[in-house]
Amino acid sequence: MEIPYAVKPRPDTGLYNAKVGIWLFLASEVMLFGALFSSYILLRVGAPAGTWPHHWLNVILGMINTIVLIASSVTVVLSWASLKMGQFGRYRVFQAITLLCALTFMLIKSFEYRDKFNHYEFQLKDGSVVDGHVDWEKTTAKVPKWIPFKLSGEGKIVVEHANVISKYPTTAENHAQLMEGPAPLSKEAKEAEERPEKEIEVSQVKAFSNYGPWHNTYTAIYFTLTGLHALHVVGGAIVIFMIWGPLAGVYRKDPVRYTNRVEVSGLFWHLVDLVWIFLFPVLYLL
């Protein structure tokens, strides 16, 4: 049995099946990310005035990643164009670059993630707050990177470039602000002394967490949006790789079908790029 229009376009719609299918799928993806963007906006306007974190992320890394993804989008469309012109070799080269871009993107992303997981905020029993990266070599206490954030036993924790805020806010309002992270405390942060390093004893710590998704609603939505996007990058790269490598034999037998596959996977890849084009300003810049 042969499904009609699997390769050739149907005359009245001018489309082959997979092209209709992928656009429908992309439409649902738009709604998926749309819902998450709505959530982002709501959480942001719902945060007490002035408490939404700004510039918590490394703009340079974000920008490099944006450029990497844009470059990959260019190579994806060029690889499809090469196939259209019958240049299989060039297609392969372009798509190899795409895959490298995907890899680079994921590497940079994982550096950024790691950075956030090493960044801690300790609330001490004397009411002060210590914020910074933990120096794992000098630290002797067992500090978890994952929930639940509980310390046991003894030992010390060494925080690099610690930002120390001496007064722990006590009123409900200040408390709410603290929940949103150190940014709202910038006034006090100015007064706070910048120290290169700070040592804390386990027994001093009242509560703490790192800057994982659980830290506040900003990190939560940041990890969710970028995590879901990263899953799409990985998924898209796997599909592109499969067509590029293991399934390349299809090209000889049925070049039209093969080119269609490249086109469809390319459409998905462009959507991934598109989502990032919005994620970058929203999370890194605004």
Binding site: V77, L267, H270, D273, I277, P281, L285
Partner: peptide, 20 residues
């Protein structure tokens, strides 16, 4: 916010309009 979104939309248009 407005400026950033306008730029993002313009970029998005290029991707969707021409690459796709």
């Amino acid at each position: 916010v407005i400026v950033a979104l306008i730029i993002a939309c313009a970029k998005g248009f290029l991707v969707v309009g021409f690459f796709m």
